[in-house]
Design a protein around this nucleic acid. Structure first.
Length: 421
DNA sequence: TCTGGGGTCCTAGGACCC
DNA sequence: TCTGGGGTCCTAGGACCC
């Protein structure tokens, strides 16, 4: 049976999630900020309309915020993760073949021969998700993922489309491509867009007809795949089961710069504990650990960025063992005399804990470690993050991230549940 | 000083995504 | 004063081997 790719994407997802729970945000411009309340990472339709750009630093759009009374919120990831789970679960009723692509998007394989048209199915999806979660979504259908992205771009922009566009075997595909600036093609980022425009390739349609060899040379096989996908040839696979993680990373910009190695140590200890928790939550062990530090690239300060990688042998998910290695790696990565603004811990060579095999010695001690860690993870989950910690990382410190405008975690924390008056 | 071919593995850096 | 975090994939180049 012929199959189409469907793409369902939540509109302004973070801002929409906030609106679901706070009626006074309705009809108002809303923006959600990144960590440290630094940049705008999500905007409601009203906020887009008054010209607040994606990724804009808050201080640059301050005057717009004040002039229009924009609601400004720190990001609340536990709320968004929960809302994401909700709306994606509703969609599972429409096809068993679903790829949970990102927090606000799913790809689905849609059979073509059922009673109703894809556009009708898309409208039904919007209705169901809206009714059950309050989240508005857009829907696009096409022969490939890249074309489904094209479809959804138009679904979002066109009033006539009503939130759903179907480009499967459509005579309008080339029209849709011609109306799409090349920079808006999935897989074409800031750099490639500049390079392509210089070559006179300005629209998605131009890119579709670009010379294969030239594209291969300038944009590697990755770019060539995009071009093929625009031609309707599937190159980017549909992946219903998520791939095994290869790497995980915990990093933050600090609330302020610091030259104190003591403070950086505390930050790295905190990141390591977080990263190790993530490992255990996923049932993984790590074989490599990297610590990196960097100065503030927006300042005139002397710039430095350094990293150091150590191998973790035998592979481990023990916070205690990783902490030790991380501090050693930090010694190597760090250089005195610079004001550090950002640091992080990356874990690589990940493997399922069960597969990694036993240890030649001290197996007993490691197993004891694991049981202790699991107990600590549980307590932290139950009684709040950081209720039990390893070693010393002080509560206060310039490296702590700021969240000064966070909305309540309505759906994931009993103490913050909504109350009706 | 000139001077092979072919293969693997690793790393750093650059591009992209949400 | 104020500029996010967490990922993937590909390529080039170096080290090393026969």
């Amino acid at each position: 049976m012929p199959v189409a790719i469907g793409l369902i994407d939540a509109n302004n997802f973070y801002a929409s999630s906030e609106k679901v729970f706070d009626p006074k945000l309705s009809g108002r411009p809303v923006v959600v900020l990144s960590n440290n309340d630094g940049c705008v990472v999500a905007r409601s339709a009203e906020a887009k309309q008054i010209g607040i750009g994606m990724g804009a630093p808050v201080f640059e759009v301050r005057s717009l915020i004040d002039r229009y009374g924009v609601e400004v919120l720190s990001s609340n990831y536990s709320l968004y993760a929960d809302m994401s789970w909700r709306f994606q679960t509703v969609l599972e009723d429409f096809s068993p073949d679903i790829e949970h692509y990102s927090i606000d998007e799913v790809f689905m394989k849609m059979p073509l021969s059922s009673g109703r048209t894809l556009v009708e199915t898309g409208r039904e999806m919007r209705r169901a998700v809206g009714a059950l979660t309050g989240i508005p979504v857009s829907v696009g259908f096409a022969e490939t993922k890249t074309l489904a992205k094209v479809a959804i771009e138009h679904a979002k922009k066109s009033r006539k489309a009503g939130g759903v566009v179907d480009l499967v075997r459509s005579p309008y595909t080339d029209v849709a491509l011609e109306r799409l600036p090349v920079a808006d093609v999935w897989g074409v980022g800031f750099r490639y867009a500049g390079m392509l425009e210089k070559q006179g390739i300005r629209t998605a349609l131009d890119l579709k007809h670009a010379d294969d060899n030239w594209v291969r040379k300038k944009m590697t096989v990755v770019g060539l795949r995009t071009v093929y996908e625009l031609r309707g040839i599937q190159c980017i696979p549909f992946e219903p089961t998520p791939k095994a993680k290869q790497m995980l990373c915990v990093s933050r910009s600090f609330g302020a710069r610091t030259g104190s190695l003591r403070e950086i140590r505390a930050a790295v200890a905190f990141f390591t504990a977080k990263a190790a928790e993530k490992l255990r939550r996923n049932g993984l062990v790590a074989g490599r650990l990297t610590v990196f530090v960097a100065t503030d690239r927006f300042k005139d300060d002397p710039q430095y960025s350094g990293s150091h990688t150590v191998s973790v042998a035998p592979k481990s998910a023990s916070t205690i063992e990783l902490m030790e290695l991380a501090q050693r790696a930090l010694e190597k990565a760090h250089r005195h005399g610079f004001l550090i603004r950002k640091a992080g811990v990356m874990l690589g060579d990940l493997e399922l804990a069960g597969k990694a095999g036993g240890r030649l010695w001290e197996q007993d001690r490691y197993e004891l470690h694991c049981r202790l860690m699991l107990a600590v993870d549980e307590l932290n989950e139950k009684y709040g993050d950081g209720c039990i910690r390893y070693g010393v990382f002080p509560d206060a410190g310039v490296w702590r991230t700021k969240f000064e405008m966070r909305s309540p975690s309505y759906t994931t924390d009993w103490s913050q549940i909504m109350t009706a008056h």
